[in-house]
Design a protein around this nucleic acid. Sequence first.
DNA 1: CTGAAAGCGCTTACAG
DNA 2: CTGAAAGCGCTTACAG
Lengths: 355, 355
Amino acid sequence: MTTSPGSRIRLQDVATLAGVSLSAASRILRGDEEDFGADTCRRVTEAAEKLGWRRNLLVNGMQTGRTRTVGVVIPPYDSFWVAVLAGIHGALAADDYLPITVWLGDLDHMPHFEADEKQGVALMNRLLDRRVDGLILWPPFGLAYYEHARELRDQTVPVVMIDYHCDTLICDTVTTNEVAAAQDIARHLVGLGHRRIAYIGGRETPSQAWAQERRQSLEAAMADHPEITFASWRLNKTGSDAVDVCRRLLNSRLRPTAVVAASDHEAVHVYRAAADAGLTIPDDVSVVGFADLDFAQSMVPPLTTVRQRAGEIGRRAATLLLSRLAGKAPAEFVDARVDGDFMPRQSTGPAKGTG
Amino acid sequence: MTTSPGSRIRLQDVATLAGVSLSAASRILRGDEEDFGADTCRRVTEAAEKLGWRRNLLVNGMQTGRTRTVGVVIPPYDSFWVAVLAGIHGALAADDYLPITVWLGDLDHMPHFEADEKQGVALMNRLLDRRVDGLILWPPFGLAYYEHARELRDQTVPVVMIDYHCDTLICDTVTTNEVAAAQDIARHLVGLGHRRIAYIGGRETPSQAWAQERRQSLEAAMADHPEITFASWRLNKTGSDAVDVCRRLLNSRLRPTAVVAASDHEAVHVYRAAADAGLTIPDDVSVVGFADLDFAQSMVPPLTTVRQRAGEIGRRAATLLLSRLAGKAPAEFVDARVDGDFMPRQSTGPAKGTG
DNA sequence: CTGAAAGCGCTTACAG
DNA sequence: CTGAAAGCGCTTACAG
C-alpha cells in the first residue's frame, strides 16, 4: 500500500535487461532505430515494455530548458472562463503541451486582486519555479504582477493576456472586438426606438481594462447617434450594491428605456431591480447583457446579449503562445481581436411609447 | 522580443557574484544559514536577488523523486465539478502542492470514455511522465484506465477517485453519502403523500458507479415503504433521447406523481417533458434533482434537490492524497463519504389528490 | 566556516 | 553498430 517512489524503473534497468548500453537504449527508445539492428531494437522495446519503463520528462526539461508546459492563471469563474480554459487546453494538448492551471482565492468570493498582490506574485513564481515555458493570464493578473516577476518583465518567459488591453502593449493579448460589439448593441437599441439608454458596469481597475474599453466603446457608439441620451453608472468595488444601484438607475431622472449591462452577471441584477420596481422586461425596460453565459438563454425573458467566442479566444491565446515559443510569432506584440456575436433575444423590445 | 530560455540565471552565477562556492550558495539559499557567516549569507542573498535567480524545481523533482505535483483528471464540466476542482486546488496549494488539471474531449460533447480508452491512457501517461506524485480522478477514469497504467496498478502512484465506488476498493475514494440522501428524498416524497414514484437515470457504465449506487440507494429507500410503487427508467447511452424518455415516463402506466432524477441535468429534461405534456410542476408532478447545480435554484419552479458538498469533496480528496503521500494514511483504502444536504424547494408538493 | 566530488536520470556528441 | 564521457542544474554528504 505504501508508495515507494524510489522504486521506479530507470533506463539503466531496461538497458541491462536488454543487454545493451544505456545510450543504446536511450537512442532506440527515442526512435533512433536506424543505427541499430532490428533484433537489438526489439529487445530494448520489449524490455521497456516488460518493465513498464516511462520516460522522465523532468530530465528533458532540465536538459533542454523547455518543459512543454504552460502556466495558465485563469479560474473557472463562470461559463465564459471555463470555455476559454477548454479552448486553451485543447490547443495546447494538440501540440503536446501541458497546461498548468492555477488561480488565487476561492471562486465564490473572488478576491480583490490589488489586495492580494503578494499572493499573486507568489503564484506566478511557483509556476516559474516549475519552469513553465510561457504563461496565459486573465485580466486581474495585469500590469502589477507583470512588473513584479522578473522573468516576465525581462521577457524571458512569453505571456499572453486575455481580455487585458492597454495602449502600449506589454505582451500578446487576445480580446473580444469590443468596438464592433458596442456598435451592434447601439444599432439594435436605436433601431428599436430607444432614446434614453443607460450603461451599468462594475468598477474599472487598471487591471480590468476590458471593462473600461467596453464602456468607452459603447459611449463612442452612442455618440454616433446624437438623438440618444446616454449615461454610464457604476457599481462599488465589490459589486455588493448591485441591485440597489440598478434600482436607483431605473428610477433616475434619465428614466432609461434600455439598460446595457457590462456583462450578463450585471444583467441579472438589472432583472431583479426591474422586478422590484414593478417594471416589465422588455415592455418597460429593455436589457442587454454581454458574454452569453450559460444562464443567459434561460433567463426570463431570455437575455439579449453579445456572445463572446470563448473557445476561440482560448485557442487563439494558446496558439499565439505556441507560435511565440516556436519563434514564429511577429516581432511586435500581437493584439488579437475575436469578434462577438450579437444575440437578440426577448429582453429587448421597442422603446415604450414607440410601439 | 524573442525568448532565450537558455539565458536563465544559474546558481553558479549567484555563487560567483557573491564570491562563494556553488555548494555554499546552495545551502545558504535553502536556509542552512547557521553554518555560515552573516556577511556571507547576506552577500549570497543579495546576489540572488540582484540576478533574479529562482530555484529550479525540476532539479528537486529529479533528485528526490517527488515533484510536489498532483495530476487532476477532472473537467470543469458543470458547477459541481468546478467546485470540486476549487476544493482540490485550495487544499493542495495550502500544502504547497501544484495541481495539474487535464481532461479528455471538449466540454460540450463529453465523449464516451469507453470509446476513448487509448486517449485516456495516453492522458494518464502524460501526467506520469511528468512524475506527478499522485492522481485525483473523476468517475469515467475508473477501472479501465486504472488497469492500463502500470504505475497505478502497481500502486507506485497513489490515486484518489471521486464519485467512483465499487465493492472491492482499488484506491482511496470520496463519494457523496448516497444512502442517506436517498432516504431523505424518500422520506420527503412519502411525507407529501406520493405513492407512485419514478426514477430517471442516465446509463450506468461500470465506470459510473455512482449512478448505479444512486439508483440502488433510492430503490432500497423506497423498499422501506411498501405502499410505494416505484420504477426506474434509464436514458440511452448519450442521453440524446432524454426528453422523449421523460415524456414516455410521465405518460407511462405508472403515471408517477413524483420523479426523481439522477441529477439536476436530468431534472431539466423532466421539466421540459412535463411542459410538453401539459403537466404543471409540482401540482401534477413533483420533481427532485441531485447535486444542486448552479441553475437549480433559478429553475421555474426552483428545484428540490440534494446539494452535494462539492468543495468539501474536493478538499477531502486532496487531503486524503496528501496524507497518503506523507505515509500517514491508514493501511486500507479509505472510503470517505460526504453527506449531502436535502434542499426542499418548490418543485415538490403534495401528491395530486392528496391535498 | 568552506570547497571538491558524486549523484539524480537521462541525452548527445564522440571515439571506437 | 556500440559504449565511455560530459553535461543539464542543482543537493548533499564528506573531507578539509
